[in-house]
Amino acid sequence: MSIDESTAARVAKLARIKVEPDALPALAQEFNNILGFIEQLNEVDVDGVEPMTSVTPQVLKKREDVVRDGDQQAKVLANAPDAREGFFAVPKVVE
């Protein structure tokens, strides 16, 4: 498996990280080095092996479906780069 520049660009887009076009060749090469390392996993016989979902045998706890928290608008917004009138503000999303 070899990653070319267009795949690197697509991955960057999916990750929502801006990568300048002139940085793509080096990025693709780094991906290839790391994926080359990961390819070793293909040597392992994993037939019939369950993928691990939880490292300790535990059942996720359930709780009653009731409101236990809330009314913390000021705290929730305290660290926002741009908060207005009780909301997070973002650039225009819909034309």
Binding site: V11, N42, V44, M52
Partner: peptide, 23 residues
């Protein structure tokens, strides 16, 4: 980005699920 790649459509089984089996 590596994480995004190994979870992306078409590679999830080959990388992520295989790694979880090895785990």
């Amino acid at each position: 980005m590596v994480g995004t790649y190994v979870l992306s459509a078409g590679f999830y089984d080959a990388y992520y699920n295989r790694a979880r089996k090895v785990r």
